[in-house]
């Protein structure tokens, strides 16, 4: 398949990227790893008139200890997230989940910022960072702002980013030894999850988010609420789909997805509590 015709410009810094995207208007799109955008373009489901390639903005690829959180540059590749000793120590859930994105080719090219900005509810890392209570940093023509992950996802492939804003950093709180689990249920290793669960638990606190259970990544607040009030894991897991609005596709009906979410949340919490 061949995409519709488009123009291509390359940015060498975040500032230049934002200026280029402003210059080219609404139909311009950032190109990072290209593993979400290019397939849509090849199917002509996306037809941007200009691609602003930010793949060589090297100062946005980093993983740093920032005290109470780890700061990750938006252009950090999944493989670097997966293999980061810093993340393994402080946010092992994210490092582990990054190892389940797509296949090795995708993980070497795809970026953490790209998958979050794309806001696909079926992708693993938007839900994972949501469960972890991450904060995203966006840069626009008038400077930077912070957006809580819980406020970021607004609809199917829609985020709180303005057209002339670029995601530059992901700030993930350190997990402080919390138990955790990532459950990805799919038919082939390389596929999107039919249903996925990212969960952590530490004493009365917990975070649980669902992959592919609605038009956005879903924060399963009812589960965390029940656990905080002392509910058993089995009872809390029954509330797994309280915030979800699952869709039907070739792999699953909404009823099956709801069932899977309950089973997987229970398993995730059991693992996180072990």
């Amino acid at each position: 398949m061949i995409p519709a015709a488009f123009d291509y410009v390359r940015a060498t810094s975040a500032d230049e990227a934002i200026s280029l995207i402003g210059e080219h208007g609404e139909d311009a799109k950032f190109l990072a790893g290209g593993h979400s955008l290019l397939p849509l373009m090849k199917l002509r489901l996306a037809q941007p008139s200009v691609l602003v390639d930010i793949g060589r903005v090297s100062d946005l690829s980093y993983i740093r200890d920032a005290g109470d959180h780890i700061a990750i540059g938006a252009l950090t590749r999944h493989m670097d997230v997966e293999r980061s000793p810093l993340l393994a120590e402080h946010v092992p859930l994210l490092a582990h989940a990054a190892g389940h994105v797509g296949d090795p080719q995708v993980r070497h090219r795809g970026t953490l910022g790209g998958t979050i900005a794309h806001a696909d509810p079926a992708s693993d890392l938007p839900a994972t960072t949501l469960a972890l209570g991450a904060t995203y940093v966006a840069q626009g023509p008038n400077g930077t702002r912070e957006i809580a992950a819980a406020d970021f996802y607004q609809g199917f492939l829609e985020s709180a980013l303005a057209a002339d804003e670029m995601l530059t950093e992901i700030r993930v709180p350190k997990m402080g030894g919390a138990g955790w689990s990532f459950q990805k249920f799919n038919r082939r290793a390389q596929d999107w999850a039919i249903v996925g669960v990212a969960a952590w638990r530490r004493n009365g606190d917990s975070g649980v988010a669902l992959v592919n259970m609605g038009s956005t990544p879903i924060l399963a607040s009812s589960v965390s609420g029940a656990l905080a009030q002392g509910a058993s894991i089995a009872d809390a897991a029954q509330l797994a789909a309280a915030e979800a609005e699952p869709q039907s596709d070739l792999n699953a009906s909404p009823e099956y997805r709801v069932h899977l979410a309950k089973v997987l949340v229970r398993r995730a919490l059991e693992q996180a509590s072990a």
Binding site: L43, R187, R188, A189, D191, L250
Partner: peptide, 16 residues
């Protein structure tokens, strides 16, 4: 055809 691409037509890979 609903399984019109290799994302829906599930040819297993070595890992599967």
């Amino acid at each position: 055809l609903k399984s019109g691409t290799l994302a829906e037509y599930l040819v297993p890979a070595a890992s599967d």
